[in-house]
Design a protein around this nucleic acid. Structure first.
Length: 429
RNA sequence: GCGAGCGUAGCUCAGUCGGUAGAGUGCUGCACUGUGGAUGCAGUUGUCGCGGGUUCAAGUCCCGUCGCUCGCCCCA
């Protein structure tokens, strides 16, 4: 390795086998989103820093965004999240859109953070939002969307779970413990860290934010009450909708899910792996009923989530669920070049076969047939076509099945059909 | 921002007490001039991350630096 410029820290190179995973995720996301009637949309990758200053967490803008001045001196950010763009787009056309709005998106985002397993500085994110409905059933649809996606990519309900809680429920419980609303934000952070800190560290964190012993005991009791959702009519409705949507197995109540972001107002959810030691959350979201009004639009309720691609990749890899055949050529047919004299005839044959709809890889130079077969095998081709002097003189082509090593010679006009026939039996077997 | 570990061939890595730079794999050729994956033989690949220091001698020890990885913080 000499004189190769390092890639930018935290970015990934998508070699074909990696890009195929990315495309596969995109495809599955598209199919699941569309199956629920969501429409694809996208915002710009570059946004004015002001867009994020309005509402995103201070830290996300100041510490974790790529920001640079353009030639006129305006501060531009590489988007660290999609929600502000989404909210702006809706506010801009608020009177012209039909509600509820079901929108989804999949694209790149950037955050200036320290790269490690399951986290980079450049990542892809799936966003799905349901705008204009304030109901537990809408929340349930979000959970179902996530669950159906997991099902589709091969993650079972014993491998991943969508954990759900409700902030209004917890706020009410905290008030019963005489924890004032202005302190509840800090308690949310405390709850958020329950599984990340040791018991000792967690206790001392509680002390630090001014929680009394009695209140602390109450909080601990809250966090171990797994059927508290029954106290919340919202969650009762939510779970009955989840049941109706057929994803009960994937969705579970957890008093410990609270989410870090401030703008969530009701139901919150987070998908986690329960079968690997990957602690990082796969996806997260919740209800945000004030967001649009906060940005200057008319009040409009919404619920949504985001899922990064990196944690999903780690989990799929650890469970051995990544799609296979990732580095093979999209062409399953290779046309060999017998010698320099016949190369143009081979090229012509390749073009002819392509016209019939086949993906055809033309070997680019005359070479030993053995070498060409070896190459064909390595790129994952199934069939090699040979056009030597004998075939040319008889208006024929030789078709070789690389797997069975069987070879047939057919007239040129029948070649495409013969190839298609072999491909069909292969894929059937 | 803080902490730990690792940088040796295209790739994965070994390298003992400081004493000639290695293996596997890959790649190329040949056995095999109209037919591949096996096997055998031959060949090929190096700023040992970079800079300095100690030493007769440094891949190895010391200092610095850069890069990568993994944690913490935070989050997708």
């Amino acid at each position: 390795m000499k004189n190769i410029i390092n890639p930018v820290k935290g970015t990934r190179d998508f070699y074909p086998q990696d890009k195929s995973v990315n495309s596969w995720l995109y495809q599955n996301i598209r199919e699941v989103s569309e199956s629920f009637g969501y429409q694809e949309f996208d915002g710009p990758f570059l946004e004015s820093i002001d867009l994020y200053a309005a509402k995103s967490g201070e830290e996300l803008v100041k510490e974790q965004s790529f920001v640079f001045p353009d030639k006129s001196g305006n501060l531009i950010a590489l988007r660290p999240e999609l929600t502000p763009s989404l909210v702006r787009m809706i506010a801009q056309q608020q009177q012209q859109l039909y509600y509820p709005l079901r929108w989804w998106s999949f694209g790149p985002f950037w955050r200036y953070e320290s790269p490690q397993k399951g986290r980079g500085r450049e990542f892809f994110q799936w966003n799905a939002d349901l705008i204009g409905v304030d109901s537990p059933e809408a929340d349930a649809e979000m959970a179902a969307l996530m669950a159906e996606f997991f099902k589709k990519i091969g993650l079972s309900s014993t491998q991943v779970k969508v954990f759900v809680n409700n902030r209004r429920l917890i706020e009410g419980e905290l008030s019963k413990l005489d924890i004032s609303p202005d302190k509840q934000g800090k308690v949310f952070r405390l709850i958020d860290r329950k599984d990340k800190l040791s018991d000792k560290e967690w206790s001392s964190y509680a002390l630090k934010i001014g929680i009394e012993t009695k209140q602390f005991d109450g909080i601990k009791k809250l966090l171990s009450t797994d059927d508290m959702w029954k106290e919340s009519t919202e969650l009762v409705q939510f779970f009955s909708a989840v049941d109706a949507l057929g994803v009960k197995d994937y969705v579970e109540y957890s008093p410990r899910i609270i989410r870090g972001l401030d703008y969530y107002t009701g139901t919150v959810f987070e998908a986690l792996s329960i079968s690997t030691d990957v602690r990082r959350s796969i996806s997260g979201g919740g209800r945000y009923d004030n967001l649009l009004a906060d940005v200057g639009g008319d009040s409009l309720p919404g619920v949504g989530f985001a899922m990064g691609d990196m944690v999903v990749n780690v989990i799929l890899e650890e469970l051995g669920l990544l799609p296979e055949n990732r580095s093979s050529s999209p062409a399953k047919v290779i046309v060999t070049v017998f010698d320099a004299e016949s190369q143009m005839a081979s090229y012509q044959l390749g073009a002819e076969l392509r016209q019939t709809g086949l993906n055809v890889y033309s070997y680019p130079t005359p070479d030993k047939l053995g070498k060409q077969f070896r190459h064909a095998d390595r790129i994952g081709a199934k069939i090699a076509v040979i056009l030597g002097p004998d075939e040319i003189s008889k208006q024929q082509v030789a078709i070789k099945d690389l797997k069975t090593r069987e070879q047939v010679t057919v007239s040129r006009s029948e070649a495409a059909a013969a190839i298609q026939g072999i491909l069909d039996t292969d894929s059937g077997a």
